[in-house]
Design a protein around this nucleic acid. Structure first.
Length: 988
DNA sequence: GACCTGGAAAGAGAG
DNA sequence: ACCTCTCTTTCCAGG
């Protein structure tokens, strides 16, 4: 097992006149994850940069990898200037492969490579022996000479016209064009660094400004910022109307405790002050204010403007995320991610001409209201915090209370519940952040959602009474089971509300889980706060076969205005009404580590209207079919009408604007010498426009078969009958104007591709219609081209030494009720942050069709031909469909699907424990080069890699191909953004 | 009476 | 500027 330590290279640079002339200050925070692959060899796997434009700071973080030879141990020491636990957090978060699902508090020395100007950083954290390694004058304790001043070389490709449209493979020649200019920057002296009192940019607030869209959850270095500035819990604390002392009273009783018992504060109707309805301008939608009244001093007012009174309910979640639904974001973030970042680089070069200002998302410019003003603090405001600290109300028999810490020092000593740590609320690095993407299985363990929730659940507002627990389709409730756990000790299942958009799964800013109690609730639960997100804890008891019926979880809707106006919040609530139930379990390992697994449910539409009107496609019987069409496909879902139409659409792909390409070469210091990091940033911005459809046709709907929840449609012939590779298109159900379902994906195959039938689906049989195997897909999601990611070394991700999940039958009793073949693992998958998600990630354009393609949040799968197949970091944690995604081959490789078996698409597989043998999956291991899957890959990466000078240890890593598109309920493309980020790092 | 559930009104914003 | 539609939020009522 490899040691992991995290160097942080976090000097603050003030780049020269070129940048300043544009109001640009390149802070250039470089941070890197580093792990020792073996003696004398290290792999640095991350980088971040931050730059400042005017008042805004932006981060650019991503993960790359390069090998770094370290001749001897002292050399390693040369990196260990500033051990700092806190700094390792964002890095580790950025690359969960390093922290993976195992967590320890073992201090990861944070390695600073930032040179002799380290005095400031030595102040970051002094609890490590190596701190203070730097001496003010560049002398080290051992008398070694100070490091040279690091230099940063910015090497930019020649700037192509902004509107230059590149084809999907255009990066090939981009890379090959090589470097045409180099700017070498020398680090300033200490005064050029950040304030010594600040943490390294790797963790500092400023460098990860929540106002920066770049500090997105998508970033591999997402900083779960729990700083006082950003913590919503801070609000009551700092409110002049509040009672700050209460905040620090963890054992407040009485009314507080009483309210706390019910979770989020239930406000008396009519007494709930309203949050400001200021939209913040710039079209930032504050959401419909609806009927707003608030009570103040006994008088009820109807709110018509910005209220000085903030919601008494502190928004439970701060999410320095990129808005995913706001049109403004579309327009601006795209520019930002492309222009602003690269402009920062280009500003340092000779040819960058970008108006950075245009690139700043409007919302990031918005002057946040002072949330501390006018806050009306009510007892309930403190409940969650209180509950975090008061664990006196655990139900009897609550598991693990007596649990002793087993080496995992991160475990909460007070409540002894795995996964709970009192320091969560203060951003403890000891647990995986809630926006980490964790696998659903590892080793013998498999966390499985056996019964999925219904696709609609009307969330209740704080002003409303509960609307009950989330239910399952048949009227029951969701069921979650942990397989493979043979210990006698109970565990705790955590549940929180996550997002359900196209992006990484993360806590939903506008929804919180709501604990349901009452005689109808059979499952004990308990609320805690973790990283400002309410988490419901449910015991997983061995006597129940580690199975929990989730009948205690409702969904609370927070008012958009309350959330959007929080400092740092960048998500938009409007139309952001789909959520997922996210389950986590933390399993202590004998070695003291803790294994964390996560599974997320299908998407749940939480609004009232959408649940009633919009058609919803939950499953489709056919995922792909030859271009000839003609096959009948069954759609199941909701709100199908006799006059519903099914429209197949092929959207233009591959076009785009290559806005910027840059190389960043940096000299990274070691003891007495410096290495050059060469960072290639090739950003690609696609400028698709809605309506740019290559093909659109209405499919024939069997009117007679239309039911409210099912519909049979004939697959239309594809426009081109002679396609040589699969073509992915979309289709949607339309009930009329603005009443479209989310786009579903369908793949047209070359006519000669053999079709392999899938097993009949019992669940579908239950519908009483034709025996068509159903392919369940989250309705919310627009399919993303398959991220070509490779798990080349599972152990890299599985620090604990576990390989990914073995076939389930090895760990799961076949007698389990969940072994029913009728059960599907419908869990959407989120991209792992093993592949960080800078805002610049995007899918490669071009026709992308592959049987193993992730669609609609499907698992990422190994691409056997991926150029980074051999990359030690080309690995991926996935979640959602453990039997699909995380089931390794016999050698620990991810399961992939036979590319020639379109019907064996992962989405069609029932999650049948013990059914592995019959699985049509192909266990892929060391596939031959010809074993490409349906054409789509990352050709540019291949060529990019090929183009790298042989002398360089370059690993090109493709970022998660987040296709930043949001299709609204009406099917309208809300925004598009498609950006490549390539990172090349090498040592000279 | 509390909780759950469905429906709809009111109001603001988007188009 | 006006209108229509959509969406959010609150309120009501029945089980």
């Amino acid at each position: 097992m490899q040691d992991t330590f995290c160097p942080s290279v976090s000097p603050k640079f003030s780049f020269g006149a070129a940048g300043k002339e544009r109001g640009l200050h390149f802070l250039t925070s470089l941070a890197a994850d580093m792990k020792s692959a073996e003696e004398g060899k290290h792999i640095i796997t991350g980088v971040e940069m931050s730059f400042q434009h005017e008042e805004q700071e932006f981060d650019f973080r991503s993960v790359f990898e390069y090998s770094l030879d370290v001749q001897n141990e002292p050399e390693r020491d040369a990196y260990s200037y500033t051990p700092n636990v806190s700094l390792s957090l964002p890095l580790g978060m950025g690359n969960p492969c390093l922290a993976t699902q195992y967590h320890t508090l073992q201090t990861s020395p944070v390695i600073s490579v930032s040179s002799c100007h380290q005095t400031g950083y030595s102040l970051q954290n002094d609890n490590h022996a190596a701190s203070g390694y730097y001496l003010p004058h560049g002398l080290r304790p051992n008398g070694a000479p100070a490091l040279e001043s690091p230099r940063i070389e910015i090497t930019a490709y020649s700037q192509y016209p902004e509107d230059e449209v590149e084809e999907s493979n255009s990066e090939d020649h981009i890379i090959k064009r090589g470097v045409n200019s180099i700017v070498t920057l020398t680090l300033p002296n200490a005064d050029g660094y950040r304030d010594p009192s600040c943490l390294s940019p790797a963790s500092s607030v400023s460098s990860r400004s929540c106002n920066s869209d770049a500090s997105s959850y998508e970033s591999g270095f997402y900083n779960y910022d729990n700083s006082p500035q950003n913590s919503p819990w801070q609000s009551p604390c700092v409110s002049p109307k509040g009672t700050p002392t209460l905040m620090s009273c963890p054992h407040a009783n009485g009314p507080i405790g009483a309210v706390a018992e019910e979770g989020w504060p239930a406000q008396p109707r009519g007494s709930r002050p309203n949050s400001p309805s200021c939209s913040g301008g710039n079209g930032v939608n504050g959401g419909g204010m609806g009927k707003r009244k608030y009570s103040f001093n006994g008088t009820t007012y109807r709110q018509t403007s910005c209220s000085p009174i903030q919601s008494p309910i502190p928004s439970p979640h701060i999410s320095p995320r990129v808005s995913v639904t706001d049109e403004n974001w579309l327009a601006n973030t795209n520019q930002y991610t492309n222009s602003a970042i690269v402009a920062a680089i280009n500003a340092l070069t000779t040819d960058g001409v970008v108006d950075l200002g245009e690139g700043i998302p409007i919302k990031t410019r918005k002057t946040m209201l002072d949330h501390s003003m006018g806050l009306k603090l009510e007892p309930g405001d403190l409940l969650s915090l209180d509950r975090e600290l008061c664990h006196e109300d655990y139900p009897l028999g609550w598991p693990s209370r007596r649990r002793t810490t087993v080496g995992g020092s991160w475990m909460c000593p007070s409540i002894h519940i795995p996964g709970l740590n009192p320091s969560h609320t203060s951003g403890s690095p000891s647990l995986p952040s809630l926006d980490w993407q964790l696998p659903s299985c590892s080793g013998p363990y498999n966390l499985q959602i056996e019964v999925q929730p219904k696709s609609h659940h009307r969330a209740h507002y704080e002003t409303e009474g509960s609307r009950g627990a989330v239910k399952a389709l048949c009227g029951s409730h969701p069921v979650v089971q942990l397989y493979g756990y043979m210990e006698s000790e109970p565990l705790t299942l955590q549940l929180f509300i996550g997002t359900a958009d196209d992006r990484l799964l993360r806590p939903h800013a506008f929804y919180q889980v709501h604990r349901i109690t009452g005689k109808t609730v059979s499952t004990a639960s308990h609320e805690v706060m973790q990283s400002n997100t309410k988490v419901l804890e449910i015991p997983l008891l061995p006597e129940n076969n580690m199975r929990a019926i989730i009948d205690c979880a409702g969904i609370l809707k927070l008012r958009n205005s309350d959330i959007e106006l929080r400092k740092g919040e960048t998500d938009i609530g409007r139309k952001n009404t789909r959520v997922r139930l996210v389950f986590r379990v933390h399993i202590n390992q004998p070695n003291g580590r803790t294994l964390s697994l996560q599974a997320s449910s299908n998407a749940i539409e939480c609004s009232q209207r959408s649940a009633q009107e919009l058609p919803l496609v939950e499953k489709q019987s056919v995922e792909s079919y030859p271009a000839t069409g003609g096959k009948m496909m069954l759609l199941s879902g909701l709100n199908f009408l006799p006059d519903s139409k099914v429209v197949f659409v092929e959207k233009a792909q591959g076009g785009g604007v290559v806005r910027n390409r840059s190389f960043l070469q940096m000299l990274q210091g070691r003891r007495g010498e410096w290495k050059v990091l060469r960072l290639s940033v090739v950003q690609r911005s696609l400028t698709r426009k809605d309506g740019h459809h290559l093909w659109e046709t209405e499919a024939k709907v069997d009117k007679d078969s239309v039911k409210n929840n099912s519909l049979v449609v004939e697959i239309p012939p594809y426009r081109n009958q002679r396609i040589s590779s699969p073509v992915q298109v979309d289709f949607y159900v339309c009930n009329g104007k603005r009443k479209r379902s989310q786009c579903q994906t369908f793949t047209f195959l070359p006519p000669n591709v053999p079709i392999i039938k899938t097993e009949p689906n019992d669940e579908y049989d239950s519908l009483g219609t034709a025996r068509l195997p159903m392919h369940s897909k989250p309705f919310y999601s627009r399919p993303r081209p398959t991220p070509i990611m490779t798990l080349t070394n599972p152990d890299d991700c599985l620090v604990g030494g576990y390989t990914p999940c073995p076939p389930r039958h090895t760990a799961m009793p076949s007698s389990s009720p969940s072994s029913s073949p009728t059960l599907h693992d419908l869990s959407p998958v989120a991209y792992s942050k093993c592949f960080p998600n800078s805002p610049d990630h995007a899918a490669p354009p071009g026709p992308v069709v592959t049987p193993i393609q992730e669609t609609s949040g499907r698992p990422n799968l190994t691409h056997p031909a991926s150029p980074d197949h051999n990359s030690p970091l080309g690995m991926l944690h996935s979640q959602g469909s453990p039997n699909h995604l995380n089931s390794p081959g016999p050698h620990g490789y991810h399961t992939i699907y036979d590319s020639s078996s379109p019907s064996s698409s992962p989405v069609s597989q029932p999650s049948t424990p013990g059914g592995t043998e019959d699985s049509p999956f192909v266990q892929a291991y060391s596939p031959g080069p010809g074993q490409t899957h349906t054409g789509e890959s990352s050709p540019s990466l291949l060529t990019d890699d090929d183009a790298s000078p042989p002398s360089m240890a370059i690993t090109v890593k493709q970022e998660p191909q987040e296709l930043d598109q949001m299709y609204l309920d009406d099917g309208k493309l809300q925004k598009t953004r498609c950006t490549y980020v390539f990172l090349q790092v090498s040592i000279r």
